[in-house]
Structure formats: structure tokens, C-alpha cells
Write a protein that binds this DNA or RNA. Sequence first.
DNA 1: AGGGTGACGGGAA
DNA 2: CTTCCCGCCACCC
Length: 102
Amino acid sequence: MQPFTATVIKIIKEIPEGKVMSYGQIATYAGSPRGARQVVRILHSMSHKYSLPWHRVVNKVGEIKISDGHQADRQKELLEREGVFFIRDHQVDMSRSQYDRA
DNA sequence: AGGGTGACGGGAA
DNA sequence: CTTCCCGCCACCC
């Protein structure tokens, strides 16, 4: 496994409950500022086998952008359950719920 | 090899 | 606020 992939998985597993991180933010912490799309791939292909808190990852402005609507609703549900703040239906209030420092 | 595709991001208009 | 465009990069035909 690539070191980048391992680091990304580690970072995601460290996101605390009630907090979220953006794809680009995770890529940056993992040492690849332009690797947001790889973070997407990793989530898409390994969230299950590594039991990652995939729902705690949103885009830069806090929006849930999963193409599958059913999964998107599921993510919103999980986040609300942990007390993440929303400013709109499918948008997290990043000023209050973004996890800084990893 | 070569083209299409994102659960992205940043900048311009 | 909304488009539109471009860079990015691993993966999948």
C-alpha cells in the first residue's frame, strides 16, 4: 500500500465524533495538497475494509456531495446523530464542526 | 496507448 | 449568488 494511502486512512480514523474534515484538508495533512481526488478514491474503495468514519468527510465548504442520494441521506443522518452542526439541508457548518489539526 | 471519470479545489467572470 | 474552466491523478475501460 502507498504511504499516502496509509496516512490518509490514519488521518480519517482520527477524526473525532461530531467533527468533519474536507477531502483537500486530509490530502494536505497527508502530504499531497493536490490529492483530494485520491482521498475520494480511498474512501470509495476502502471505507468498508478499514471501517473508516467515511461520513465525517465532506467537501471544502461542508457540503455532502455523494452522487448516490441514498448514501448522502445516510451520511447526513450519521452526522446529525453525532451533533454536527448544519447550516442547510446537506451542508455542514464548517466554522463550528471542522476538525483542525491532525 | 488513449480517452473518460469523479464523494475535489481554486480562481475568474 | 451562479457558471465556467482548468489542474489534478489514480482507476477503468
